[in-house]
Structures are given as C-alpha cells and as structure tokens.
Design a protein around this nucleic acid. Structure first.
Length: 463
RNA sequence: UCCCCGGUAGCUCAAUCGGUAGAGCGGGCGGCUGUUAACCGCUAGGUUGUAGGUUCGAGUCCUACCCGGGGAGCCA
C-alpha cells in the first residue's frame, strides 16, 4: 500500500479509503480495556492525524507501550468519519509497527510547550515541534515564492561566489578562509606569507554577492542571487546571524524609483504566496506567537508603503516632540528607536526611506546632484526594522573612482568593478533582502535564531 | 563589545528577614474515560551554573569566572 502524507489525507481523504501513514507520534491517550488514540505527525502539515488502535489489533499488547511521544511508526488502516470533535476523519488501524522507539524517560520533547531557549539547545529535535515544523514549511514557501517572483519577471538566477578575495565594500567583518596550519605557524613564524595559502592571498567568506551580480546585470539583464552570506560581527541581538541567507536582485536600466517599486511588489508578492500556501501555519503563528500577525501582514499586502526621503524623516522625528535616547540630527544614521517610531507609531506601516547622506552609505551608491546625498533606499518594517537595503548604483566612472578614494578603498583591486563603468556603462539598481528577517516578519517570531534551522551566532556553531 | 536581568528536579517556575528544597507539567505504576493541553490516585527524581569568601548556618549576602536571555551598537 502506497504511503500517503497526512496533509493529503486530512485535505481530501474519504471514509472507506485504505491508507498507510508513516510518521512520528505526538501523543497517545489510552483506554485500558478499549483502545488507544494516537496522534501522528509527518511534517506535511501542522495538524496531526488521529489514529485509533483497538486492543484487538495484532501486536497491541506487546507494542502499544512503545508507541510514545517521539517514536516513529507505520500505521495501516481505514479512514472513517470521526465522531469526536476536532477532526473530520480519523484512521482506524488494522496493523501497526513501531519503527523506532523513543525512550520517554530521556526523550526531551514533551507534549507541552517548551521555551525557545531550550529548543535552541536541541536543534536536532526542534523541527519535530509545531512551531519549527511550521517554520520549515513557511521558510520553504518563502524561498520558492522568491524564485517564482523573479522567474516570472525574466530575472536570471545567478550564482555568485561564496569565497572572495576582495575585502568588499566594508560591509561588516569578514570570516577568513585559509588552509594554512595556524597552530603550527603560531609556533614557528611571526609573519604570515599568504603566497603559501590556498589562493595565494588572503581569502574570505562573502558578505554580499552584489558586486558580482552587477557584472551579470550589465551583461544579460536583470538577475538575482539567493544564497548564504557571512558576517563576522560580534552582534548579539534578536536580529543578527553570523550566517544568513540573502536575496540580491540587480537590474540594469532601473533607477531608484523602479528599484523601490520592485522591492515593494516583491515583499507583497511573497507574503501573498505564503498566505495562500501556508494558511494553517500562519494561523498557528498568529494564535500562538503573535496575535497581531494577521493584521500586520494584511496591512503590508494591502497598503502602499510610505515613501519619504531621509531628510523628511529627520524632520518628522525632530518635530515629533519625542525625546529619543539618541538625538536626531541630519547626517547621522537613524537609530533603532527612530526607525521604530516611524514604522510602529507615526505611520504604523512599512516605510521606504531614500536619499541618505553620502557619508553614512557605501561607495557604490549613486551620488545625487546635491552632492550631499546618495540614491539609497531602506525598507523598514514594524518590529523587525530594516528588511531591505538597496540603491541605485553609481554608473559614472569618474564619480565612482572619486567615491572609492574618499572611502579609503584600494582602487587597484576594484579594476574589474570599474571596468563595468568604463565599457558600456548603464544606470542600474538593486537591493538585498535578509531572508531570516523577512521570515521574522512573516511568522512574528521574536528571535532570528528561531528563523533558520541551524543558527550561527558568536560562540554558537553546534549542529 | 557595552548596559540590564537571570541560572533551583527532564521542562516551566516558587522558596518571606540568611534557618536545612517545593509546585505544575513530563516520567513510572495503578484506576477511569470516544479521547484530543484528557482526567483521578500513588511514586521516583536535587552537590541550587562553577570556584572561592562572609556566617553558628548560604538557593538567598560578597568576589571572580562560565552559560542563557533582553536592550544598544554594527547591519540584512
């Protein structure tokens, strides 16, 4: 008999149908002389399938005691309408096996709620919980929708390198990659000779695929990257990971407004897709994690994002009458409290800020005619903060070179990047979306470490 | 990295003024029931994060360290 997944059974299974189910036991309730209720989950959906194992079922006496929370089982039987509340149909078992028992004395997961802190310590078992099952499905749906969005629009999925030798854009601290025997060298030399390292010079894990994506955008058209990114910052917050996934579209012939349009459309598209495909999971997050979630998401998909310049934002903040811990002053980067005020109190909506002071943004952003601001844009959302950062890129060779010098970069090592402006330069734009922050937004989860299967943060790289 | 809070049973937590360790859940055993956070009874389970110190006496006070969480900075 073919195995059927529980999502399919609960959705379209009919009384009288024979099915085989393979999965993990969530709970068992016994009737001593009658039968046992066993709830099984196979990860295909949030809901469990309720199975009834009668005491007359072959092997019941010997094996039912091994049907405990966490055990893996094979259940064969017939679907019947359920007389009880809480489920449309249930499985009446004809035959069952315990594939792998789970000692209830030591199995860490209980039927009750666990703290997320505890679950992080058992990252190998937390996917078996409701929350992380839902997380896994939502993350999958988000990833798939991201590809759909760009593929439908003719963007190419480009694979940019994970290992890089360019200490690019000063976007955070880098993880170094080496095959040198550091322990041995520490005992024998005082200076490293990178000619003996694998790449013949220092190499690092990428902090962004943007510069390489620009190469392809200026060749084959709009493209996007979607891969892991690494930052060696010693950040200990609910919004930072040392290893995270980033989506970076890059579009030729796009100016900043086109870029903002795309970013807004993109966020709305992905959320709608997840709403369609993971309705149960989102409902779970709304009920158990953050009961403002449904409203937040509806607010995002149904309204236009507020757009205002950095300068206008500064004026609003200064006129707000609020006393912030950090004073608002033109030329300084906005603090978390300022962003939160704008998104959570003043507008109560996502906000796209653009035209930031040149001094607080990287070299590659296009300089405005005022000479003071650059064509940057950040998409800020309630609670999570910056979920997208992007810009129109500086396509003028001379201006770009000057900006690089200004930012203290070694112009020589960026010759390939400058060459894109030297030969057939075009206006172009792009942005980066932090996948886990986006998932935080969509699920309402408080901590980004619970939005990725195996979080990497300072002092944490287990599993 | 800085600031704040915390670390007591497998999990979540309580323990008054410094006076000799408790509950719920989970586990085991028994009972009961078309149950569904099941219910009822019994029961086992602890070097109170680590190392020092103060004290007749420390879970409680002091010092250092380790670990966890939240906030800030950096950023996506």
């Amino acid at each position: 008999m073919r195995r059927q997944r529980i999502a399919e059974i609960l959705h379209s299974g009919q009384p009288g149908q024979s099915v085989t189910v393979l999965g993990w036991v969530r709970t068992r309730r016994d009737s001593k002389h009658g039968f046992s209720f066993v709830e099984v989950n196979d990860g295909s959906c949030l809901k469990n399938l309720q199975a009834i194992i009668d005491a007359q079922t072959p092997g019941y006496a010997e094996r039912i005691r091994a049907v405990t929370t966490g055990a893996s089982v094979r259940l064969e039987g017939e679907l019947k309408e359920s007389p009880g509340k809480g489920q449309r149909i249930e499985l009446h078992v004809r035959a069952f096996d315990v594939l792998g028992p789970a000692d209830p004395e030591t199995y860490p997961l209980q039927k009750k709620r666990h703290s997320f802190e505890f679950l992080r310590e058992i990252a190998h078992l937390r996917p078996r919980t409701n929350t992380f099952g839902a997380m896994t499905r939502v993350r999958n749906a988000v990833s798939f929708a991201i590809h759909e969005f760009f593929q439908e629009r003719g963007f190419y999925y480009v694979h940019t390198p994970i290992i890089t030798t360019s200490d690019c854009e000063g976007a955070g601290a880098l993880f170094q990659v080496t095959t040198l025997d550091l322990e041995k060298l520490a005992r024998t030399v005082t200076e490293l000779d990178y000619r003996h390292d694998f790449f013949g010079k220092p190499a690092y894990l990428t902090v962004s695929g943007q510069l390489q994506a620009e190469i392809f955008a200026c060749a084959v058209g709009a493209c996007y990257t979607f891969g892991p990114t690494f930052r060696a910052e010693n950040s200990n917050t609910t919004r930072h990971l040392a290893e995270f996934w980033m989506v970076e579209p890059e579009m030729p012939f796009y100016e900043l407004n086109d870029n903002m349009d795309l970013a807004e459309e993109f966020i709305k598209y992905v959320i709608r897709r997840v709403q369609q495909r993971c309705a149960d999971d989102l409902e779970f997050f709304n009920q158990r994690i953050d009961n403002t979630l449904s409203d937040t998401l509806a607010n995002i998909t149904e309204n236009r994002f507020v757009r205002l310049s950095y300068t206008e934002a500064v004026e609003i903040l200064q006129r707000s009458g609020r006393s912030f811990e950090f004073p608002v002053q033109w030329g300084n980067d906005l603090q978390s409290e300022h962003e939160r005020f704008l998104t959570e109190e003043h507008f109560k909506a996502p906000v796209i800020l653009y035209d930031y002071p040149r001094t607080i943004k990287p070299f590659y952003m296009r300089l405005n005619d005022d000479g003071k601001t650059v064509r940057a844009m950040d998409v800020l959302v309630p609670r999570v903060g910056e979920v997208i950062g992007g810009s129109q890129r500086e396509e003028r060779l001379d201006v770009l070179q000057q900006r690089m010098v200004e930012c203290g970069l070694n112009v020589e090592s960026y010759q390939w990047y400058l060459a894109l402006r030297r030969y057939g330069t075009v206006p172009h734009s792009g942005f980066g979306l932090g996948l886990e922050r986006f998932i935080q937004l969509i699920t309402g989860m408080q901590n980004i470490r619970d939005c990725i299967p195996f979080p990497r943060t300072p002092k944490h790289a287990d599993f």
